[in-house]
């Protein structure tokens, strides 16, 4: 005996496969537009991995060293910070992120007053107290960012970007500091160029630490 179905149930039963078909079609269209397939070795050949050592070395030689002549004299920077803080930050500082921490590429010369394990203190005429040149703990992004010559958008991820900073600091630790540290003594006259970090909101210029880029003992 055939089962008698109300017209609405019949219609619903007919609609069900149609609904599944539409759903499957939708899934197929989405899937087709969602993924693509390639040979792995072709993809790998096309994307050479980032070489932070080479990048840092190139950056050091072709971008950072040529910009050292643009470094601001520490005396004039400190004077400007006292008279017009905003102008000092606007004209001479760089930073890649938002926030109050900004970096300055500075230069100066003075007389060595103390040679400690971690730093060399230098007295600069017209600047008090002494400025400390870091010779042991070279960390952070001060040198990379202070020049303003690096573009964050050129990096595909922040790990590569941070590795560049680490490699620049390594160059300073291995090439800039050792010849200076082994020869410098109290009373020496030195020229230096380097990067300092200042907080725009909570400005503190009493205990400046310079991460050096170029150091010269210039005794007469």
């Amino acid at each position: 005996m055939s089962k008698i179905m109300p017209p609405t149930a019949k219609r619903n039963n007919m609609r069900k496969p149609l609904r599944y078909l539409v759903f499957l079609l939708l899934v197929a269209v989405l899937a087709y537009n969602s993924v693509y397939f390639k040979k792995l070795d072709e993809v790998k050949a096309g994307s050479a991995s980032f070489n932070a050592v080479k990048y840092a070395s190139d950056f050091w030689n072709t971008k950072l060293i040529p910009t050292l002549n643009k470094a601001v004299e520490i005396n004039s920077l400190l004077s400007l910070l006292k008279t017009d803080k905003e102008k000092a930050f606007k004209d001479h500082s760089h930073a890649l992120g938002i926030g109050n921490i900004r970096y300055f590429l500075i230069k100066g010369s003075g007389v060595v007053t103390d040679v400690a394990e971690n730093q060399v203190s230098v007295q600069i005429e017209g600047v008090a107290p002494d400025i400390n040149i870091a010779t042991e703990y070279i960390f952070g992004n001060a040198v990379r960012d202070a020049s303003g010559a690096i573009d964050i958008n050129a990096f595909s991820n922040s790990m590569d970007f941070n590795n560049v900073s680490a490699e620049i600091n390594k160059i300073i630790r291995e090439k800039v500091v050792p010849p200076f540290k082994s020869n410098v003594k109290k009373g020496d006259h030195v020229d230096f160029t380097g990067a300092i970090e200042l907080n725009r909101e909570h400005l503190q210029t009493n205990n400046l630490e310079v991460i050096p880029v170029n150091l010269k003992i210039t005794n007469p």
Binding site: S34, V35, V43
Partner: peptide
Amino acid sequence: EVPANNLYIGFTILGAIL
């Protein structure tokens, strides 16, 4: 990456969001 089959499955923006 599926190294066993030398296969790379790439995702479009739509695919990654989905």
